[in-house]
Amino acid sequence: MKAPPFAYRRAENLTAACALLDAHGGNARILAGGQSLIPTLNLRLSQPELLIDISQIADLRGIRVGANEVVIGALTRHVDIERSADLARLCPTLVEAARHIAHPAIRNRGTIGGSIALADPAAEWPAAALAFNMTFTAASSKGERTLSATGFFKGLYETALEPGEVLKSIHVPLPAAGGKAAFGELTRRSGDYAIAGAFVNANLSGGRLSGVRIAFFGVATQPVLAVGAMQALEGTGGDAAALSAARARLEADLDPIADLYNSRATKLHLSGVLLGRLVAKLFA
């Protein structure tokens, strides 16, 4: 289980990384925390000619609180999010989710940017990005552009990033007053990829939900916004009837696919159970 031969360059800054990406076209891969890429290489599932190591670019790392958003540098590690006092105060659901990403050794190296750019359908951050309406800044030699999480995830390991682009930062809108969120995932062992996982984000005012956003992970080929279920819950008090209506929409929303151990029916059933529990959490 040895990686095939590859060249390695450490980029000193984002400009250099983009230049290397341009020079090597589709044959180069960005190396951040390496927690997905390195196993892929060792399993010889991927044979890039060049790895561009961006891990030493200091300005890609860190969590900064702005007026309306929290900006998370793409190289910010899962453990940094898990331990961030700012996020614990402003977006506690993200901190809670971080603890469910694999194991400490992986959280110590893996990065939020790597997770989002890879778009593993079973990963927590892509779904969080959808649920919290995050935006991303992508950089290339042509400059920077802003992408919305909605529409960013296009399929299995497919994103809206263009060739030559590097994910630079993740922008999390600060929750409004009355903002409520819940996270949950069902795993057979702690640290495993979830059979079904979800983030629910909404405003709760006068016992009614509004601006409901629900994103699932681990159920389909990409993270999914459960649009039908969101509509079914919008304006309701999360009561049994509303929940039942929301659950009824999940099959069309998620179109779940079986994994090694769980059929489509099981995935759907568990997604429904999870949704009910997370909505209940909003009202807890």
């Binding site: 069902l186 059979i195 029916a265 099981t266 059933h269």
Partner: peptide, 13 residues
């Protein structure tokens, strides 16, 4: 005894 096998036994899936 996977969750799916229990759910099947329980008639849930």
């Amino acid at each position: 005894f996977t969750p799916e096998r229990l759910l099947k036994a329980l008639g849930k899936v």
